[in-house]
Write a protein that binds this DNA or RNA. Structure first.
Length: 253
DNA sequence: AAAGTTGTCAACCGCGAATCT
DNA sequence: GAGATTCGCGGTTGACAACTT
């Protein structure tokens, strides 16, 4: 059977995009919108494969992209998100408006990895370097870290360990990121009937709130303390306090 | 100034998931 | 339900720039 190639390689350009190609792609997407990447190149008069067009648009041409250096705040957020999600760059990018998965992945590999190493932290595990392996192994088996890179294997674990999750006394991620509330509860799927705070929608919230940092010093709106309805510190990171862990909703596309 | 080394990042590749027929 | 097609993701590569010797 085999997989058909994504495009006819003999008649496609490769390598860096020219200004003209960019202009063609932008003009086409402005006129027709995104989607159907396979047929787009032909329709737009581009000698590129659909994947290449998609990548170019998403990573460089999209009008909502934020160019320029990452801020210290973004750095720390990426580190925290990576400790939670692993190399799920698209999910991480979903929490950083204007940033792309490719950009964050590159930035991680070139800057943040080194930064963590300098701090004596293993960028892969987010644990101190030279920590005894045994300790790490024990921690890995006794905690409830949900690694989305192994979603298939973890699905059962999530279900089987629900009770244990709630009784968990110490969450290692929380120890490493004490300002993150990682309380995990499994509940019925998302229902349209949401608490008042949810009804207000994320659009009205400040950037910090949209990241689940309602009570942080960076919060510029006053919803954090009054709307959570929860007595503890107010984070609803990953919407965990609303009782739902729907990681797919992290994608903001 | 030239050569070698290192860092950066845009782009490609292959795979799995989702969707279509 | 099976196979084909398309999309999206993460890992990797390679060209170029910046820096060092």
């Amino acid at each position: 059977m085999g997989r058909s190639p994504c495009c006819e390689k003999a008649h496609t350009n490769k390598g860096a995009w020219t200004k003209e190609e960019d202009d063609r792609l932008i003009a086409y997407i402005r006129a027709h919108g995104e989607g159907c990447w396979r047929s787009l190149p032909k329709a737009a008069g581009l000698l590129r494969c659909g994947k290449s067009c998609r990548l170019r648009w998403i990573n460089y041409l999209r009008p909502d992209l934020k160019r320029g250096n990452f801020t210290e705040e973004e750095d720390e957020l990426i580190i925290k998100l990576h400790s939670l999600l692993g190399n799920k760059w698209s999910l991480i990018a979903g929490r950083l408006p204007g940033r792309t998965d490719n950009e964050i992945k590159n930035y991680w590999n070139t800057h943040i990895r080194r930064k963590l190493l300098n701090r004596g932290i293993d960028p892969a595990t987010h644990r101190p370097l030279h920590e005894p392996a045994q300790e790490s192994a024990v921690a890995a088996t006794t905690t409830t870290t949900i690694s989305f890179s192994h979603v298939k294997e973890e699905k059962d674990k999530i279900i089987c360990t629900t009770a244990a999750v709630c009784k968990e006394e110490k969450n290692p991620i929380q120890e490493r990121c004490p300002d993150l509330n990682l309380e995990l509860r499994i509940s019925l799927p998302y229902q349209s009937q949401q608490p008042e705070a949810m009804k207000t929608g994320a659009r009205g919230l400040c950037f910090a709130c949209r990241l689940g940092l309602q009570n942080s010093k960076d919060c510029s709106c006053n919803l954090g303390s009054s709307s959570s309805g929860s007595s503890n510190s107010g984070y609803d990171f990953l919407a965990t306090k609303s009782g739902v862990l729907d990681y797919r909703s992290l994608e903001m596309k």
